[in-house]
Amino acid sequence: MTAGGTYRPSWHGEDTEALASLTTAFMRKEFVPHRERFEEQQHVDRELWRSAGEHGLLCCAVPIEFGGPGGELVHDLAVLEAHTRMADATWGNMVHSGIVSHYILAFGTEEQKHRWLPGMVAGDLVAAIAMTEPGTGSDLQAITTRAKREGTEYVINGAKTFISNGYLADLVIVVASTDPAAGHRGISLIVVETAGCPGFSRGRMLRKLGSHSADTSELFFDDVRVPATNLLGGEEGRGFVQLMEQLPQERLLIGLQAAGMTALALEETIAYTKSRQAFGRSVFDNQNTQFVLAEAATKADAARVFLDWCIGRHLAGQLTAATAAQCKWLLTEVLCEVVDQCLQLFGGYGYMTEYPIARLYADARATKIFGGTNEIMRQVIAKSL
Rank of each mutant, 00 (worst) to 15 (best):
A169M: 00
L189H: 15
L125I: 13
D45H: 13
G350M: 04
A364K: 05
R207P: 00
Q141R: 13
G372T: 11
E54W: 06
G317F: 11
Q326C: 14
F200V: 02
A263G: 09
G135A: 12
H102C: 02
R149N: 00
E218P: 01
R359I: 11
M261W: 08
S282K: 08
K274R: 15
K29W: 09
S21M: 09
R85T: 05
C197Q: 15
W91E: 01
V241Y: 12
S275K: 14
P227F: 09
Q326A: 06
A362H: 12
L77W: 13
V192R: 05
H12V: 08
E81F: 07
R46V: 13
R115P: 01
K148F: 04
F31I: 15
L57H: 09
W116R: 02
Q287G: 00
G5W: 10
E236T: 11
L385T: 11
N230A: 04
W309P: 02
T136N: 05
R365E: 06
T273G: 01
E36L: 13
G151H: 11
R238H: 10
F221A: 01
G260Q: 04
A300T: 05
Q41E: 13
G137N: 14
Q112L: 03
I270K: 03
G372K: 08
N157D: 15
N286Q: 10
V380G: 02
P9M: 01
R204E: 11
L253T: 04
S275R: 14
Y349Q: 12
T320C: 03
E268G: 02
E14F: 10
M120N: 04
E17Q: 15
D76W: 06
I143C: 04
G372N: 07
G186F: 11
Y167T: 15
F284E: 03
W91T: 04
L77Q: 03
A18W: 09
V172D: 02
A322I: 11
F31R: 04
I173W: 06
P227G: 03
T373R: 12
T229L: 05
G98E: 07
A258Q: 02
E354I: 15
E268V: 05
R359Y: 07
I254P: 00
M205W: 10
L247K: 10
Y351S: 03
Q242P: 00
G199V: 07
L189E: 09
G5I: 07
L266T: 01
T152H: 12
L209G: 07
L243I: 15
M244I: 04
V155Q: 05
Q290N: 07
D308P: 03
S21V: 08
C342N: 06
E110K: 12
R281I: 07
M94A: 11
T289W: 09
L168W: 06
F107I: 06
G158W: 12
D15Q: 14
T84M: 02
G237D: 04
A382G: 02
F370I: 05
A87V: 15
D124T: 14
K299W: 11
F291G: 01
V226I: 08
L189A: 06
E72D: 08
F220T: 05
I254G: 00
Q112M: 04
T90W: 08
D308K: 03
G348A: 09
L253D: 04
M377S: 14
K113M: 05
S21D: 13
L171E: 02
G137P: 05
I254D: 01
V44I: 14
E30H: 12
R115V: 04
R8N: 09
A364S: 15
R146Y: 06
Y154I: 02
V175E: 14
E54L: 08
M244V: 07
C197E: 12
